[in-house]
Simulated scan of single mutants.
Amino acid sequence: MNFIILIVVGGILGWLASIVMRTNAQQGILLNVVVGIVGAILAGFIITPLIGGAPITEGAFDIRSLFASFIGAVVLLAIVNLFRRGKVR
């Protein structure tokens, strides 16, 4: 059950990050989910220890872990844009 919630929340966070980074028209729902989950994993290792709390991948769905996962997804999209276009939007 936790995996299904992670997929749904990852999809929503990936979609919101793609709107912020203006890549929503280029991505489908599958890529939004992948970006959200990978961003959550990135944030769990890097951002969450800095702000305190538990990562979203361990089932912690508080505001700090959701915000950290969102930031991780935005950073991941910025890195992808940097390699794809040579610049960050």
Rank of each mutant, 00 (worst) to 15 (best):
M1V: 12
M1W: 14
M1D: 12
M1N: 12
M1K: 15
N2L: 10
F3S: 08
I4D: 09
I5W: 06
L6N: 05
L6H: 05
L6C: 02
L6K: 07
I7V: 00
V8F: 13
V8D: 08
V9M: 10
G10H: 09
G11W: 04
I12W: 02
L13H: 06
L13P: 02
W15P: 00
L16V: 10
A17W: 04
S18V: 08
I19D: 08
V20E: 02
V20L: 06
V20M: 08
M21E: 11
R22G: 01
R22K: 14
R22C: 07
T23W: 10
N24T: 13
A25R: 14
Q27V: 07
G28F: 05
G28L: 07
I29F: 15
L30N: 00
L30T: 13
N32F: 14
N32H: 15
V34P: 02
V34G: 02
I37Q: 08
G39V: 03
A40S: 13
A40F: 09
L42M: 11
L42R: 04
G44F: 05
F45T: 04
I46K: 07
I46M: 02
I47N: 01
P49R: 10
L50M: 14
I51F: 11
G53Y: 03
P55V: 04
T57P: 02
E58Q: 12
E58V: 02
A60Q: 13
A60L: 07
F61L: 10
F61C: 01
F61E: 05
F61P: 01
F61G: 00
F61S: 10
F61A: 03
D62T: 08
D62A: 03
R64M: 05
R64W: 07
L66C: 12
A68S: 15
A68C: 11
S69C: 04
F70W: 09
F70L: 11
A73H: 04
A73Y: 01
V74T: 04
V75R: 05
L76S: 09
L76V: 12
A78K: 11
A78M: 15
V80E: 15
V80F: 11
N81A: 13
N81K: 15
L82C: 02
L82I: 11
F83M: 08
F83P: 06
R84L: 15
R84T: 13
R85F: 15
G86P: 06
G86K: 10
K87Q: 13
V88M: 11
V88K: 06
V88H: 09
